[in-house]
């Protein structure tokens, strides 16, 4: 099982994502933004950071990186893709996921441990969790407020495509406390908080983020 982790210029969390992939039991394959092939990976993770300096809009330039053309094609054919934080922003700009991530409502960059509830455990990246399970993982971003129009929000809620919600006070102004969503097929998932920073108790607030990385193995084996 080969999981690609893409590094764009300005990506920060590619190493933690690769480490989480290995902890989850798969092989981590480094992919570069300028790569013209996906090196036969079975799934791809777009990690967090500030790709291309967040210039223009978060994820707006990364969307046009050569490797993204291949990721978009593969995702549309069913390949599992997980975008975390900046990766989520890239997936929205790529139109693989609806909506957009905008500036936190209080304008502050947030960095804290955040409790989230898993709402949908039937996607490629959430099957290791139970529905309604609450986990605590780091949240660290300046532009994490999920926004979309009413029709899109109704579609996401109606089709069960909200995969995780913030628990407690809304940290960033996201509509309906949305922390993560999926595409209609469930192979593409975007998540604002960081499960890759919570895979063992030594370096994170918990090991509860590991479920995202074991889920993908279940999805590929079954």
């Amino acid at each position: 099982m080969r999981i690609g982790v893409i590094t764009f210029p300005g990506t920060l969390d590619d190493r933690d994502a690769a480490r989480a992939v290995v902890h989850g039991g798969a092989e981590a394959i480094s992919l570069w933004h300028a790569d013209a092939d996906l090196k036969n990976v079975d799934a791809v993770i777009l990690p967090g950071g500030f790709s291309y300096g967040d210039y223009l809009r978060c994820g707006a330039i990364s969307r046009f990186a050569p490797v993204m053309k291949l990721v978009i094609e593969a995702a549309n054919k069913g390949m599992p893709v997980l975008g975390i934080c900046n990766g989520f922003q890239v997936l929205c700009e790529s139109h693989l996921l609806p909506g957009a991530l905008t500036r936190n409502s209080d304008l502050h960059f947030l960095c804290r441990d955040q409790e989230i509830e898993i709402i949908n455990n039937s996607t490629a990246w959430t099957s290791s969790f139970t529905q309604g399970e609450k986990i605590t993982i780091p949240l660290k971003n300046g532009e994490g407020s999920f926004q979309c129009d009413e029709a899109t929000l109704a579609m996401l809620e109606g089709e069960g495509r909200v995969i995780a919600r913030y628990v407690g006070e809304n940290p960033n102004g996201s509509r309906n406390l949305i922390a993560g969503i999926s595409n209609a097929q469930g192979n593409v998932v975007g998540l604002m908080p960081h499960p890759e920073h919570a895979i063992d108790a030594l370096t994170g607030p918990s090991d509860q983020g590991l479920g995202f990385f074991t889920s993908i193995l279940n999805a590929m084996v079954n």
């Binding site: 905008t102 500036r103 936190n104 407020s145 926004q147």
Partner: peptide, 9 residues
């Protein structure tokens, strides 16, 4: 930003 989108700045 569209009028309905929150503009914190």
């Amino acid at each position: 930003l569209k009028p309905e989108i929150l503009d914190p700045q």
